[in-house]
Amino acid sequence: MPSRIVQRIHFEDFGGTEFERLVFAYHVRAGWTDLAWYGQTGSDGGRDIVGKEPLENGGYRSCVIQCVNRKTLTQKKAEEDMARAIAASANNLEVFKFVIGSAVSATRRDTVKTAAINAGITSLTIWSGVDFEEHLRLIGEDLLRRFCDGEPFPDRPDEIRHFAADFPRLSDNEALAQMAVVFQRPAFQTRFHEESSLPAFQAAIEDTIAALNTGVWRTREGETIRRVPSLHHLRDPGTKAKVRKASELVDKLRRAFVAG
């Protein structure tokens, strides 16, 4: 079977508003809360999106997200956006994030980070188009596919939030019950010495890891069975940590198999 080549997405070829919708939808999917889309109003004050970012310890921190869907991020554009956001936040802005549709050089990253520190921003994140695409493919492949296929996202933030949330009404117990089906496959039930296809066994283990992390449940042949909740849908930090640990253990099994 020939290898499948995934071409990089050129976000800058798409409209700025659609790009902002995609960024908003991604952060909904990633578990951010209190998201507001200021860019939609046309008077964002350097704040296309604001919201609370989930932290590893179970807490949240407020962050401003600026979407830049241009062929390049200039130093002037970056500094102006940060200055406007600081002014709109009453000089109380510490966390800022750029999501850019194009490539960002190492030099530009360094100069923008220096400008951010000088402006009083203590935490700055810069995602290039490649960075954003990698994060989307991890937990929002369906969102990326919809974007690339030209299917319009809803206009209203609440409508975007509804379809991007994916399984929004499930409790953690209900989500775990659906997630458990990914272990109901021969790879976890057949004695290893009776396994008829070792490549298929490895594929099943890798698919299980992907299902726990992305919610995409596939057969050994790579066909999508259906979507299930992923660890990103779990609300309780302790429960999420246990599922993450389970994923790490399955990955440990995969690495042991590959090594020996």
Rank of each mutant, 00 (worst) to 15 (best):
G101Y: 09
N69T: 01
K77E: 13
R70L: 13
R109W: 08
K71W: 11
A85M: 07
K76G: 05
Y60R: 06
N91K: 03
Q66L: 01
A85D: 04
M82I: 07
N92W: 04
T107P: 03
V104F: 06
V99H: 10
I100F: 08
L73A: 10
T74P: 03
N118K: 11
V64A: 02
C67L: 08
F98L: 03
K77Y: 09
A116Y: 05
I100G: 01
T107G: 11
T72I: 09
T72S: 12
I86E: 05
V104I: 14
C63Q: 11
N118W: 01
S123Y: 13
G120S: 06
T111K: 07
T114F: 12
G101F: 07
I86S: 02
L93W: 04
G101A: 14
T122E: 03
R84G: 03
K76W: 01
Q75H: 14
S105D: 01
T107C: 08
R70M: 07
I117K: 15
F96E: 04
I121Y: 02
A119S: 10
A103I: 12
A87D: 00
A106D: 13
A88W: 03
V64S: 04
K97V: 13
K113G: 14
I121C: 07
F98V: 00
T107Y: 12
E94D: 02
G101Q: 10
T74I: 04
K97L: 14
T72Y: 02
N91D: 12
N69Y: 03
S89D: 05
S105C: 04
D110M: 06
N69F: 00
Q66G: 06
G120I: 05
E94T: 12
V64W: 08
G120Y: 06
Q75N: 11
R61Y: 04
M82P: 09
R108T: 13
T74L: 00
T114R: 15
N92P: 01
T114H: 13
G101N: 09
V104N: 01
K71Y: 10
D81R: 10
Y60G: 00
